[in-house]
């Protein structure tokens, strides 16, 4: 048999190469998710919901039942599904615009209700699919198509602290973390925990993932890494924000810390 690429079993090979741009962080985030699906053996009882925005390009990404929804509305679709079929493992996958702007009320409400779903949110600091407009996560001074002179926090606010917000409004049984595609191993642990927390029926699970967007950042590979590893973490602290006790006990008191 020919040598095979190391794709997760749950990836749908027929749709590869996937539709994301060169250097896009979605590919790594979705590989990590695919590996977690394989490891937890949940491919046949999973529903993957993706949003509008670049995340929609994942509509046929996995060999997993998938629903592509409206902008920001993946959360309620997945909430409705999970409520109807609690035995399924339900993931809402979206971008920062979908999660923190147009769908913010759904994220907040699902988190407050402690809905047993997993929300994975890709933070690449702007609306990528629509051509690089300012997002809730755009950094102060960052130039986008709708902040051509740089984001002015005085006029347009500071970057949304999503996991911090979710951690504040969820009960102790929720899992909340911020990972980055530049640390796939740590990210893998976070995504796995976010799924495990749902499977255990404990509570809402949320992982924000810092992700690259060389196309809209207009960066070469070197500056892409620089932006995600040096610039973004000055505003977005990577690490776990809320870890239910069950995980802490299992790990002998050690969580996947910021440097994990």
């Amino acid at each position: 048999m020919a040598v095979q690429p190391a794709m997760p079993r749950s990836w749908r090979r027929e749709t590869k190469p996937h539709k994301f741009c060169p250097g896009c962080g979605h590919g790594i985030a979705l590989r990590v998710l695919g590996q977690a699906i394989d490891q937890l053996n949940i491919q046949d009882r999973m529903v993957f919901g993706c949003d509008i925005g670049c995340s929609l390009l994942a509509w046929d990404f996995f060999n997993v039942d998938t629903v592509q929804t409206h902008h920001g509305r993946t959360t309620p679709v997945i909430v409705g599904l999970k409520r109807a079929r609690p035995e399924l493992v339900c993931v809402a996958y979206m971008g920062d615009g979908g999660g923190y702007a147009i769908g913010a009320q759904h994220l907040v409400s699902a988190a407050m209700r402690n809905d047993r779903i997993t929300v994975i949110l890709i933070n690449n600091t702007q609306y990528a699919m629509t051509g690089g407009q300012m997002a809730p996560t755009t950094l102060p001074g960052q130039k986008t198509e709708t902040s051509p002179y740089g984001r002015d926090p005085d006029m347009t606010g500071h970057p949304t602290q999503g996991p911090e917000m979710v951690a504040t409004i969820t009960p102790e049984s929720a899992y909340v973390a911020r990972g980055t595609i530049s640390r796939p191993k740590q990210l893998h642990k976070m995504v796995t925990r976010a799924l495990e927390n749902q499977i255990a029926g404990r509570g809402f699970s949320f992982v924000e993932i810092l992700a690259t967007c060389p196309t809209n950042w207009r960066t070469n590979a070197k500056n892409t890494w620089k932006f995600i590893e040096e610039t973004m973490p000055t505003h977005f602290k990577v690490g776990e924000l809320k870890v239910p006790e069950a995980f802490q006990a299992a790990a002998g008191g050690e969580g996947a810390r910021a440097d994990g």
Partner: peptide, 11 residues
């Protein structure tokens, strides 16, 4: 290199 490849192009 393979873990940071978004496309699983490297093994």
């Amino acid at each position: 290199c393979s873990t940071v490849c978004p496309d699983c192009a490297i093994l």
